[in-house]
Design a protein around this nucleic acid. Structure first.
Length: 417
RNA sequence: GGAGGGUUGGCAGAGUGGUAAUGCAGCGGCUUGCUAAGCCGUGACGAUUAAAACCGUCCGCAGGUUCGAAUCCUGUACCCUCCGCCA
């Protein structure tokens, strides 16, 4: 959510932001409703003031009671009118996307993303490499056929050392970030609707991507960003306690409704996976925002470097950004079977966009109240990251070498038949 | 699943139809020659504004009754206690 005052003062910027993010927003209509809304508010306030004056005279005389009855009726009409205008206004406000920072490249699609960095080099093999499906199936570390038999399209079982490797990844990552001062969370994934509006996943027509439970107000979260960011919703924090650095583990559920026919094979795009997410709640400060964003980036890269996986860092263009984001980096990790880098991490500055929707505020040192900034970045998401591990570390004999840092957690250093 | 109790500012806690007590904490100021204390001020949001004051709203949330609602009525969310079931 943007500040209506900001929209009034930076109308063109907001219009450009929507256009560059490929969104249609009628900003002029919002401003019209806003003017209308404020006019009605004044009228309502005047009537209420008069009512208060009368009702504070005690006991009321019969003239007062008559006038009171009239005010009551007038208020009923005007307040109804106000509610209609405000409902419409609030609805439109939910569709205004956040404004990209100045260094974000403008562009419609992935061709406008900027590659900022490459680490490592794409793995070269002196034999014909296999894809993770063949490798994993041969080693019996996951089972896709029975996965879809039981769970449906995109279903899978992780099995044997595959299951252990997955858990090892998770625990290694959780431990690493906790040692960096992040507070570890295991977050709920059954969440109320307000959290999805709060994080900015709703509206925009994205409701179809989220699993809805029969219970009307419950959804399955697609990322721990949703519950963990909402953790402090409705609260006023102290500046001295900021930034709050959280690392949340959770299962993630995604309908992938818009992705039929895309990445249909293997473990790349699945309905149900596990992710460890870095979430930071900081103060309202753009300089600090850049610094925290880079820090979250460094944490993710460190993990990939310790796993020895080749990756690249992208600065995402406006058209590839989500609505709530000021600025976004993606990390793509080398996946030999795709002969390309595949997205494994996503790192965003949300500014006060989510905090406004979730009412996360803080008291500054001079006792003023301000909205927080929020951030999130993947730490690790599995099983997608397993594709990179399995394919990059495959050996000629079809076995898979386990990255050294994971061995203390797996208890084995190679997966073979 | 059933029964009962509760939700008031950062925290504690009064208030059963007529302007929401009080205490503690935090912040700001004043005062004082004795381990420190005392005194004064200070809620959030909105509208207006150059900024403010005045004003309006806020007693979990949403409606309703009333000239007037924290208080009465209806619905609903969450918390607590007990019973039942249960990994």
């Amino acid at each position: 959510m943007l500040d209506i005052q900001y929209i009034r003062q930076n109308t063109q910027k907001v219009k450009d932001a929507a256009k560059n993010k490929n969104r249609k927003v009628d900003v002029d209509q919002i401003l019209k409703l806003d003017a209308n809304r404020r006019e009605i508010i004044s009228a309502v306030q005047k009537l209420r003031e008069e009512r208060n004056v009368i009702s504070n005279k005690r006991p009321p005389c019969s003239d007062d009671i008559e006038r009171g009855k009239k005010i009551k009726n007038e208020l009923k009409t005007v307040e109804k009118n106000l509610k209609e205008v405000e409902d419409e206004f609030n609805k439109l406000m939910l569709y205004v996307p956040n404004v990209p920072l100045d260094d974000v490249p403008i562009g419609k699609d992935s061709t406008s993303n900027v590659e900022l960095k490459k680490w490592g080099t794409p793995t070269e093999f002196d034999f014909e490499p296999k894809d993770h499906i063949e490798l994993g199936t041969n080693l019996d570390i996951f089972d896709l056929d029975r996965g879809s038999k039981i769970s449906g399209f995109r279903g899978y079982f992780l099995k044997n050392q595959g299951a252990i490797l997955h858990m090892a990844m998770m625990f290694y990552t959780m431990k690493k970030l906790t040692e960096k001062g992040f507070t570890p969370f295991i977050a709920p994934t059954v969440v109320k609707t307000f959290t999805l509006f709060g994080s900015g996943h709703f509206p925009w027509g994205s409701e179809q991507d989220v699993y809805s439970l029969n219970d009307e107000d419950s959804y399955l979260a697609g990322t721990a960003e949703i519950p963990v960011t909402a953790y402090h919703s409705g609260e006023t924090l102290n500046e001295s306690d900021l930034p709050k650095k959280y690392v949340g583990f959770s299962p993630c559920y995604r309908r992938e409704a818009g992705a039929y026919g895309k990445d249909t094979k293997g473990l790349y795009r699945v309905h149900e996976f596990w992710k460890i997410e870095q979430v930071v709640i900081g103060k309202n400060d753009l300089d600090e925002a850049i610094q925290i964003h880079e820090e979250l980036q460094k944490n993710a890269e460190e993990i990939l470097q310790e796993l020895n996986l080749p990756y690249r860092q992208l600065l995402m263009c406006t058209g590839e950004m989500g609505e709530p984001q000021h600025k976004k980096y993606d990390i793509e990790t080398w996946m030999p079977s795709r002969n390309a880098y595949g997205e494994t991490h996503s790192n965003s500055i949300m500014g006060e966009f989510q905090a406004r929707r979730l009412e996360i505020k803080y008291k500054t040192k001079d006792n003023k109240v301000n909205y927080c900034f929020t951030y999130n970045n993947t730490a690790i998401a599995s099983p997608r990251i397993l594709i990179a591990i399995i394919e990059n570390f495959q050996q000629k004999d079809g076995s898979i070498k386990i990255p050294e840092v994971l061995v203390p957690f797996t208890g084995f250093d190679v997966i073979k038949k």
